[in-house]
Write a protein that binds this DNA or RNA. Structure first.
Lengths: 201, 201
DNA sequence: TAATTTAACTTAACACTGTTAATTTTATCA
DNA sequence: TGATAAAATTAACAGTGTTAAGTTAAATTA
């Protein structure tokens, strides 16, 4: 009775194939410039086959972004081990966040700029990977407050403010690549360090 | 010989009409969802007429964004008069920047997210309005450093870091409108105040 | 093995897209 | 009025996301 299992496996495999082709095209040509036909051509199926695996183009984007968020979450949680100093841990997480965005700039934009445009109302629901990323950030901040390294700030607001800062520098560096930035790492450090300094006790 | 002058005026008028229709549609339906035909319908001309006044759709976007930047620059420079305290002036400018973005969220996104995607290599050239906006920010920061309200930080990097922070919070509030933000103004103040505190002498 | 049911996939079609070249209409000047 | 220049239009190209209907292939049953 291994037939059903094999079929399920085969379906899963094609689903991944579609997803991988979609990601590559989205990243290289931009979400709007990629057509269902292009994706279909890449995997050598007819365009409508994709609709048997995904609701529509936006759903395809959604699935690609969920993978990206998982990747980001893994990257961040891999840092958790070392560093007993909570402020240093937060700083490192901030750097890792921005560096993730700059390493995969188009994936980052898909997830944090394009997707919200096409998935309004589904930004960050309960149990989502996106929520877990923010949970991670909240825990970092919480530890800084608990150990009195930060002054008595509001946990939620502080987390959101830090997210704002790292999101901002990431996007500016991606979008305005021809702007006469000072040395990239200097800017990233400046953003993160200034925020952290402003929060210190 | 007022014929040529009238013609010039009429051409300018139609140009503005196109621009205004384009802005309204871009803002309400999103750049990619707006077709040249839709714009043409709105002004009751044939689609190709637009090409006599603008190079292409991206040029139309470019012109719309230049207007937005002028509007932003005016909004900021109107603050210049009052406030002798340079730090307070910077804080007010930061707030005004974010509030401008939230008052015209789609115009802000067109200018600072969509346009760079379609106008790569023209992000912020010499003499552009965009450059003037950043000049304004630089002057604010410069004054804070000159009056020793800020510690001896690098002018360029500091300006860019502040831009990152306000850009980030503006975009997050626009894009993730369903995220459980703490009170909006509380967050905006937190971002700006924390950055400024981190820069103080 | 042959017929039937189910799953997987494809073809054809709809009303659209940005942009170009060729053409027609409208306005100005001699 | 007729020629010239400017302005606006029509027709066409190769493409878009998505749906409904039709076809092929695989699995199950008799």
């Amino acid at each position: 009775m291994g037939v059903k299992e094999r079929r399920t496996r085969e379906k899963e495999q094609l689903r991944r194939q579609i997803l991988s082709a979609a990601r590559e095209l989205f990243v290289n040509e931009g979400y709007e410039s990629v057509s269902m036909r292009k994706i279909a051509n890449k995997i050598e199926y007819s365009p409508t086959t994709i609709y048997l695996y995904f609701e529509d183009k936006a759903d395809l984007l959604d699935s690609v972004c969920k993978e990206t968020l998982l990747d980001l979450l893994n990257t961040l949680e891999r840092l958790k081990e070392d560093t007993s100093d909570p402020v240093e841990a937060l700083r490192k997480s901030g750097k890792a966040y921005v560096e993730f965005g700059l390493k995969y700039p188009q994936d980052y934009k898909l997830t944090f700029v394009i997707r919200p445009q096409f998935q309004k109302g589904l930004g960050l629901q309960q149990g989502s990977v996106g929520e877990k990323v923010f949970d991670y950030l909240r825990a970092m901040v919480s530890e800084c407050i608990r150990q009195k390294a930060f002054r008595q700030v509001d946990l939620e607001t502080t987390g959101q403010a830090l997210w704002s800062a790292v999101h901002g520098v990431t996007l500016l560096l991606i979008d305005f690549s021809d702007f006469p930035w000072t040395e990239k790492d200097k800017l990233i450090d400046m953003v993160i360090d200034t925020m952290i300094d402003g929060l210190k006790a």
